[in-house]
Computed example of a mutant assay.
Amino acid sequence: MIKFGVVGTNWITEAFIQAAKENPDFSLTAVYSRTEDRAREFAEKYGATSVFTDVKEMALSQEIDAVYIASPTSFHARQAITFLEQGKHVLCEKPIASNKQELQAMILAAKQHNVLLMEALKSTLVPNFQVISENLHKISKVRSYFASYCQYSSRYDAYKDGNVLNAFKPEFSNGAIMDIGIYCIYPLVVLFGAPESIQATGIRLESGVDGKGSIIMKYKDMDAVVMFSKISHSSLPAEIQGEDGNIIIQNINPPEKVEIHYRNGDIEELTQSQEYPPMFYEAKEFIELIKASQVESTTNSLANSLLVMEILDEARKQMGIEFPADRNPIVTL
């Protein structure tokens, strides 16, 4: 059994626990929250035996082997480094950090202490993403990648009424590109690597984060277009266009129905049965890596996370989006 602690007691932590407990090697033993009452309430609900209100104290505990971090993005780096320095494996919710410099500090700590650090980006680990990768050759040379994730935020109405919740606060390193644009960008990087150039545009809200945006990325023989929004909605599928056909992906997060539409009119169904909730597969990957004494995923690799973070940083720069975390860099070890 891998003994897990969780940092954060929000809905995404609950979703992770519900999915991860389907794995027989997962055991929830500890919960962190800023208040002891909330930590105890959450721990009792999910059967954890230890509660913490201090991250450093939790990192020193022998009650955990690994931790899942689902706090606001601006807290990820410092919290992760605290656990990594104590030899704890870290699965950190996307985006893994506020910027590239923070991620570099996290990677340094992981390497110095020989522990696993992985970004919890579920959509690249589900069966329907794997089948895309395995069948990409069937459409011949790829010429275009398109992905859209536009989802009207449940918190945007409050924002318009003058109540700025965390999802729209730059001090938490939030915004459309960080919260949901990453779901379009990470699969692109896993499949095709780093672009040669990017051109980004977006709508900057008065709070200082982006409400929506789009990025055009140039590769040697192809281009990529991604669109993301928290202030409008879209139902467009994602598409990878090749010279002999195109792969249609219903929902980029996570990929659901997947088909190849060949140029001659034939359609091949690729959709895989996904028996478990999407977050099960990221927990499975993480646990299997720990059991195999591996310190890096080959899919959600540190190199891929760095490339994604470089794209996020450059896109934010072009859109005029700056976080307090950009002005207060973490001092590396």
Rank of each mutant, 00 (worst) to 15 (best):
I2Y: 09
G8N: 02
I12W: 11
T13F: 04
T13S: 13
A15E: 07
F16A: 05
F16W: 03
I17M: 12
A20Q: 03
K21H: 11
E22L: 13
D25P: 01
F26P: 06
T29C: 04
T29E: 11
E36P: 07
E44Q: 15
F52E: 02
F52K: 01
T53E: 08
D54Y: 10
K56R: 10
S61K: 00
S61V: 01
D65P: 04
A66Q: 06
A66D: 02
A66Y: 01
A70D: 11
S71N: 12
S74D: 08
H76G: 02
A80V: 03
I81Q: 03
I81G: 06
F83Q: 09
G87Q: 00
K88Q: 08
H89P: 05
I96M: 04
A97W: 08
A97D: 07
S98H: 03
N99E: 14
L103N: 00
Q104G: 06
M106N: 03
M106L: 08
Q112N: 14
M118K: 04
L121I: 14
V126D: 02
V126T: 10
P127L: 11
F129K: 08
I132M: 04
L136Q: 01
I139T: 07
S140W: 04
S144A: 15
S144N: 13
Y145F: 08
Y149A: 00
C150R: 15
S154F: 11
S154T: 15
R155H: 15
Y156M: 10
Y156I: 05
Y159S: 03
V164E: 08
P170Q: 12
F172H: 13
F172P: 04
S173M: 09
S173C: 12
G175M: 13
I182L: 14
I182F: 10
Y183V: 01
Y183I: 01
Y186E: 11
Y186Q: 08
Y186T: 13
V189L: 12
I198P: 14
T201V: 08
R204I: 07
R204Q: 12
S207I: 12
G208C: 07
D210C: 09
K212N: 13
I215T: 01
M217T: 07
K218R: 05
D221N: 12
M222G: 13
M222F: 01
D223P: 03
V225T: 07
V226K: 08
V226M: 02
S234V: 10
S235N: 12
L236R: 15
L236A: 15
P237V: 01
P237I: 00
I240T: 02
Q241S: 12
E243Y: 07
N246E: 05
I249Q: 00
Q250V: 07
I252Q: 01
N253C: 07
E256Y: 03
E256D: 00
I260A: 07
G265H: 00
L270Q: 05
Q272F: 02
Q272G: 00
S273H: 14
S273R: 15
Y276H: 14
P277C: 02
P278E: 15
Y281M: 05
E282V: 15
K284A: 12
E285S: 13
Q294T: 01
Q294V: 00
V295F: 13
S297A: 03
T299L: 13
N300K: 00
S301P: 09
S301Q: 00
A303H: 05
A303Q: 11
N304S: 06
N304R: 03
L306D: 02
L307H: 04
V308Q: 01
E310Y: 06
I311F: 06
E314R: 09
A315T: 03
M319D: 04
I321C: 06
P324L: 12
D326P: 04
D326K: 11
I330K: 09
